[in-house]
Design a protein around this nucleic acid. Structure first.
Lengths: 222, 222
DNA sequence: ACAAAAGTGTTAGATCTACACCCATGA
DNA sequence: TCATGGGTGTAGATCTAACACTTTTGT
C-alpha cells in the first residue's frame, strides 16, 4: 500500500479598493523555500474531505468562510516537494478584499496581496505553474460563468465589472459594447440607487441575479 | 502526518466500428462492489507521478500507449471508498477502438464497451459522478479543442466527424452547416483519396492538421 | 436507371464592431 | 459653468441558421 501526503494549495484572487485583481501569497518561514512566496495551503486531515480542507485552510488565512472556491487541478509529479511525496490538489478562490484583515499562518512570516501584473519572480515549489493554470481557468471561465461577481461587492456598477474583466483578460474592452453585452445576459438587477462618487455623473448600481442565471445561464463572450 | 491512498480512475471513451462513442467499464470481482461495473484504474505507486500512473493503468487495460489522456478532477470525499481513505484523481482518455483487444485486469472478471446512451444503472463507488464530470468536460471542450480526432482514425470523412459530435452532444447537426464550419477551422488536410463505401458516393478523406491547429487554434462552435 | 449518400450555395435574420455625443453631478 | 465620468444609438460588416437540388458511385 503506497500512501502519500495529500495537501491543498489555493490561488486566492481578491479585488482591492482600486478595483484591481490581486493574488494572495504567503512568505514562507520554513526549512524548505525559506523566504520564498508561496500559495496558502496545507495538509488534508483525516477527518475532512479534500474540498473541506481547502475551505478550512482558506478560512484560517482570510477569516472568510463564504468565498467562492473551486477545484482547479491536481499536481502529482515526483519531486515537486523536496520533503517527500506530496500530491497537491489546487483550488482557486475569489473574494472581495474589502477591509479584510489577513491572519498569517503559523509557518509564514508574512501574507501579502500582489497585483496580477506584479507577481514575485520566484515562487516556492511549482506554485508558478499552479498560478498560471488558475489564471487560464479564470480567463476561460469568465466567458460563460459569472465568476467576476464573486470579486465584486453585492452592489456594483457596470464600469466596475468591465474593469475587472479588463484586468483579468489584460485587454481593453469597449465601454459601450461591454455595457450592452453585460445587460443582454439578463442577469443584472437594476437598482434604483446610484453609487456616490467624488466627480462625474453617479453610476447606477446593480445586483447580480443568481436565480435568473441558474435558469438561463450566463454568457458574455468578449 | 496524514497519509492517504492516492488512486487514479480513467473514463475511457472509444469509437467503435459504427462510429459510435462507447465507454469502457470493468466488472469488479472483489469484496467491495462485487459484480458492479467500475472505471478502470488503480493505485499510484511510489516510483511514478500521478499522470504516469494513469497512463500505466490505461496501457495495462487497453494495450495502447499513445492515447489522448487528460486529468479531469480529483474526488476526495470521506467515505467514497468503503475500504478506507482513498483520494482518486480522475482522468479521461480518447481512443479509436479499432481491433483493440481488451486485457481484463486481475481484479476484474470482465471488461466491456458500453454505448453512451446505454450505460449500466448502478456503478461502483462514485463512478457515475466521475462519468458525468467527464461527459460535461468533453461536451464543453470539443468546441474549442480538437478532441474528436483522437477518437477517429488518422484518415476520416467529414460525415464521421459530424456523427461523433452528434453522438457526444446528443443532438442533430445540419450536415451542410457542419461541413462548412469544420472546413473553416482551417485544420483539415484534404487528401486525394476517397473512402471505399458499399453504397452511395464515396466521401473524401481528410487528415487533421495538428501543426496548423497549434499555430492558430481550433474553434467550432455549434 | 435506380438507390444511396456526398457535396454544395443562397438568403434573411441576428449579432458584432467601431465609433461620438449628450447627460448628471459636484466643485 | 466647467470638469469628470456615465449613459446611450446606429450603420456596416460579419456570422448564423435554415433550407433542396445535383453528383457520384455500385447494383
Amino acid at each position: 500500500m503506497n500512501k502519500f501526503i495529500v495537501s491543498t494549495d489555493c490561488v486566492v484572487f481578491g479585488r482591492d479598493k482600486n478595483n484591481k485583481v490581486n493574488l494572495l501569497l504567503i512568505k514562507r518561514k520554513s526549512d524548505t523555500f525559506d523566504g520564498y512566496w508561496a500559495l496558502p495551503g496545507g495538509m488534508v486531515e483525516d477527518f475532512e474531505s479534500v474540498d473541506d480542507s481547502a475551505k478550512r485552510e482558506l478560512e484560517e488565512e482570510t477569516g472568510l468562510s463564504t468565498v467562492f472556491l473551486e477545484q482547479l487541478y491536481t499536481f502529482g509529479d515526483l519531486g515537486r516537494d523536496p520533503r517527500g511525496r506530496v500530491v497537491s490538489v489546487a483550488y482557486y478562490a475569489l473574494l472581495n478584499i474589502g477591509d479584510l484583515e489577513l491572519k498569517p499562518d503559523t509557518d509564514a512570516s508574512d501574507a501579502q496581496w500582489f497585483p496580477l501584473n506584479n507577481l514575485p519572480e520566484k515562487l516556492a515549489f511549482d506554485h508558478d505553474k499552479i498560478i498560471t493554470t488558475a489564471l487560464n481557468r479564470l480567463r476561460g471561465k469568465i466567458n460563460y460563468f459569472p465568476l467576476v461577481f464573486e470579486l465584486l461587492p453585492e452592489e456594483f456598477t457596470i464600469e466596475e465589472v468591465r474593469e475587472i474583466y479588463s484586468d483579468i483578460l489584460n485587454q481593453d474592452l469597449d465601454r459601450r459594447n461591454f455595457s450592452r453585452k453585460l445587460k443582454s445576459t439578463g442577469c443584472l438587477i437594476h437598482l434604483d440607487k446610484k453609487k456616490k462618487v467624488l466627480v462625474g455623473k453617479p453610476p447606477t448600481l446593480y445586483k447580480f441575479d443568481y436565480e435568473e442565471c441558474e435558469e438561463n445561464g450566463f454568457n458574455i463572450t468578449l
